[in-house]
């Protein structure tokens, strides 16, 4: 085998594998009904409190991909998807991926607490009683979720409930984590002088 042939076969194989991986992610996005942005913009920052009254902002999660979910205790569809989201969280947490759920209930924080306890949710649950964050994210139906990458950029929009513990969902989230892994590797390489 000549060197040129070897390079051609190597490049073809490389692109096939790469394309397959990329199309796999695309298929997962499609399966999950995730709308990708036309122009990547930063996720609107917010300052909210969690259910214990501790201040939490989006900046606190910088460096980690985040699945940002809007819900309410009165939303039946939310009730159906939150347990699956908890299962996804348990699967993804070791990989450094966060799930943040923002409740838009207006008044009764105790009801949210009761709900969180009942469903055994361990990911951060924040409260947006004034609806400011909800409006900033243009929420017109519940549940609605956004995919935010580790740099705080919006990478996806999801309207309605989803099977968040499905293989497609895990694929989507791992692709976000994969991007993060690649970027972290680049940073590490840059620091060690391999890339100038």
């Amino acid at each position: 085998m000549t060197g040129k042939k070897f390079i051609a076969i190597f490049l073809t194989g490389f692109f096939l594998v790469f394309a397959n991986a990329a199309s796999g992610h695309d298929a997962d996005f499609e399966t999950m009904g995730i709308v990708k942005p036309r122009t990547v913009k930063s996720a609107p920052d917010f300052d909210l409190q969690d259910l214990e009254g501790n201040p939490v902002s989006l900046d606190d999660f910088k460096g980690k991909p985040v699945l940002l979910n809007f819900w309410a205790t009165w939303c039946q569809a939310c009730k159906e998807e939150l347990p699956a989201m908890q299962r996804l969280y348990e699967y993804l947490k070791p990989q450094g991926i966060e799930i943040v759920a923002i409740s838009i209930d207006r008044n009764d924080k105790d009801r949210i607490k009761k709900y969180v306890k009942e469903y055994g949710l361990t990911f951060p649950v924040l409260w947006d009683p004034d609806q400011k964050v909800r409006r900033g994210y243009y929420i017109m139906g519940l549940p609605t979720s956004y995919l935010v990458d580790s740099e705080g950029k919006l990478q996806g929009f999801v309207s309605g409930a989803r099977a968040w513990d499905s293989p497609a969902s895990k694929g989507v989230m791992e692709s976000l984590a994969g991007d993060m892994g690649q970027r972290m590797q680049k940073v590490a390489e840059a620091k060690s002088g391999h890339i100038k």
Partner: peptide
Amino acid sequence: SKRFVGTKAPKELGF
């Protein structure tokens, strides 16, 4: 219905 088509992704946020 929105139940089928979902809500529109907001163009203000790049969608």
